[in-house]
């Protein structure tokens, strides 16, 4: 079951038909207030939230929701609304789509978030991407069979991204969790270390396939 919070009926119509074609059940809400009530009563597996709703901003919605639920939230937003996106991601939203978006992109994001929700509890001690393998239990990273040496910070950054696979992690979030709160205003540290990880793990570091940049927001790990 997916809850769609969106005020524009035509957008609701095509999102709903696409999701239903995937075999999902869809509940709709036109306002944030209604959306919160629906989220509480219907217990959906995922919320798709439009940021341009007339009755309030998404940050309040997500903060409220996060008080009692970890269910994934996909945000629909306009271009040029970077600051709003960052705030709602910092508040706990998982991913965003910029309007206009294709049905294919939407379904890919929805699948990724639903998969994460289902496998969240499973214990996966080994993660593979590209030619790299990360053994979380033995704290070992290999690429093409050879051991790769990561510094403690690089390793912590990598595992944080892996643990939130598919989710956009903001610069602030990553800096706070890896370096500590005093580093949140030094994003160049994060950028330099992500660069190191790409050099060590990506096949073409200039065109990463797994450690993705979300311009102006943060990073995302895609397995």
């Amino acid at each position: 079951m997916i809850l769609l919070v969106e005020d524009e009926p035509e957008i609701r119509r095509f999102v709903r038909s696409a999701l239903e074609a995937e075999g999902c059940k869809v509940a709709e809400a036109e306002t944030m207030g209604r959306g919160l009530i629906e989220a509480g009563t219907r217990r959906p597996d995922l919320v798709i939230l439009d940021l341009g709703l007339p009755d309030g901003d998404g940050v309040g919605f997500v903060t409220d929701l996060r008080n009692w639920s970890t269910l994934p939230v996909l945000v629909l937003s306009a271009r040029n609304a970077e600051e709003e996106k960052i705030r709602v991601l910092d508040a706990g939203a998982d991913d965003y789509l910029t309007k206009p978006f294709s049905v294919g992109e939407l379904l890919a994001r929805v699948r990724a978030l639903l998969r994460r929700g289902r496998t969240g509890e499973q214990d996966t001690h080994q993660v593979c991407f590209g030619s790299a393998t990360v053994d979380l239990a033995r704290r070992e990273v290999r690429r093409g069979g050879e051991a790769v040496h990561l510094t403690p910070i690089e390793y912590r950054l990598l595992t944080l991204l892996i643990a939130n696979a598919g989710k956009v992690l903001t610069h602030r979030h990553l800096l706070r969790d890896v370096w500590g709160a005093s580093f949140v205003d030094s994003p160049h540290y994060l950028r330099v270390y992500v660069g190191h990880l790409r050099q060590k793990l990506e096949d073409d570091p200039t065109r990463p396939r797994h450690l993705l940049t979300e311009i102006g927001m943060g990073y995302r790990f895609r397995p």
């Binding site: 957008i11 095509f14 040029n80 309007k99 978006f101 294709s102």
Partner: peptide
């Protein structure tokens, strides 16, 4: 422009795109 024009464009784009997935 940023809201009133973009919203119908999003709908138009998404609706046209859904036609391809029509069953």
């Amino acid at each position: 422009l940023s809201h009133d024009v973009r919203t119908p464009l999003t709908a138009l784009y998404g609706l046209a795109d859904s036609l391809a997935l029509f069953q």
